[in-house]
Amino acid sequence: MTDTDLEFVSLGESGLQTSELQFGTWRFGRETAEGNLEIGEERAYELLDAYADAGGRYIDTADVYGGGDSERWIGNWLAERDREQYTVASKIYWQIREGDPNSKGTNRKSLRHRLDAILDRLDTDYLDVLYLHRWDDETPTRETMKTLNSFVEAGTVHYLGASTARPNAWRVAKANERARAEGWEPFSVLQPRYNLVDREIEGDYLEMARNEGLGVCPWSPLGQGFLTGKYDREEGLTGESRAAESTRFEEAYLTPENFDVHDELDTVAQAVDASPAQVALAWLMHRDGVTAPIVGARTAEQLEENLGAADIDLSQEQVDRLTEAKGGPYADL
């Protein structure tokens, strides 16, 4: 059991409170390229227990995680607990039935059918946050926002979010403008990729989020594992990391520039007697505009280590050193 006691923070200007570190379940039921199960049902319950023991109350999933198993297992786990004490978020976008174009996207048919299925798998009457997993360019914004608003009015969804990349920031702002003009529920929270080496949301995106009063809950806070320290500058992908091997990963993360950032991360981690992963998460928690990073893990021990980031107090000088390590256009943000 971890000694960490997670605190609550406001989810943007929504009025909803969220744990300062959210728990992501994308590995639940996921099969690797080799056909191995990353996290099975028994381990999923162990991880949920570890998160709850640390005071965590925000669970993030999606209808495609594990082919729906992630939601089923969360629902089974919640059945033994007080549902009202937990905030559960799920997401809709990716195609779920081969050959059926209406089983993808955020059109009215897809949204209504899939929300019903999400609630059934979670065995709950409502979802606290419903995210658009990606932006649907095939569906008019008015159709999507009107349908989402109907969920809020019906009480089956409490808050709306968008899991977006930086190029979609203007779409979120435009959708919220349309929603408010129509008297509909706007987006309250965003879920972008953000970490020490993936900094594309800095600038206009975060400024938009602040102007809109949106919560920002980053995914991939450890750069797909790069910021944990398991990759070697000279040898690259070795040992346990070989499962993640891909040309795209190498090109995106195993670069001299990113290893320079990791060197600074290691220096700060040593100074505060913490792991690189904990300091990378703590840096995000110190960033202006960030609400709560989404953490995940394969084992309860890894999760407890990550949750320990909440106990790391970085000085402003250390935060600045980490921020400036990337260089280029990010150094002054």
Rank of each mutant, 00 (worst) to 15 (best):
K174M: 10
D204H: 07
N258G: 08
T87D: 05
G229R: 01
I312D: 01
T228W: 11
L284D: 00
S220G: 02
A169V: 13
T156C: 04
S103R: 07
E41I: 05
Q270H: 07
V268L: 10
V290C: 02
E38R: 14
N195I: 00
G213E: 06
Y194Q: 01
R57L: 02
W184V: 00
V216N: 09
G289I: 06
W170V: 12
E250K: 14
E46W: 09
D3R: 10
T32P: 04
G225A: 03
D49R: 13
E317V: 10
G161C: 06
E250N: 11
T2Q: 03
G296D: 10
I201W: 05
F249P: 00
E264G: 07
T238F: 08
G161S: 07
E207M: 06
D260L: 14
N168K: 07
D120T: 11
A181Y: 12
E304N: 13
M145P: 02
V129T: 03
L322C: 06
W170A: 14
G229M: 04
R199G: 02
E234A: 15
E182K: 05
Q316A: 10
E250R: 15
M1K: 08
G68V: 09
E46D: 15
Y51D: 12
D100N: 11
N211E: 13
E34T: 15
P218N: 06
L21H: 06
L314T: 00
L47D: 05
V272Q: 11
L314I: 05
T18W: 01
V268C: 03
S275N: 08
Q224P: 02
L115Y: 03
P167I: 11
M208C: 15
A79I: 05
R81E: 14
I118W: 08
T267L: 08
Y93N: 01
A243F: 07
E207G: 06
S70C: 03
A33R: 10
R97G: 03
P101S: 03
R30F: 07
E301C: 03
D123P: 08
V9Y: 06
G296Q: 04
P329T: 08
T228D: 04
E41T: 09
Q278E: 04
N107Y: 09
F8N: 15
T106M: 14
F8C: 10
W184T: 04
T144M: 04
L322F: 05
G183Y: 08
Y159K: 00
D60Y: 01
G223F: 13
E234W: 09
E245L: 13
S150K: 00
I74E: 08
I92M: 04
D5A: 13
T238W: 05
Q318C: 12
S163F: 14
R112D: 12
A292K: 05
L47Q: 12
N258T: 06
S14T: 06
Y65E: 06
D204A: 15
H113M: 07
I92R: 04
A181H: 07
E98I: 07
A62P: 01
V319T: 00
E38W: 07
A52I: 06
H113G: 12
T124L: 02
A331G: 10
R108M: 00
G225K: 06
F249L: 13
L314M: 06
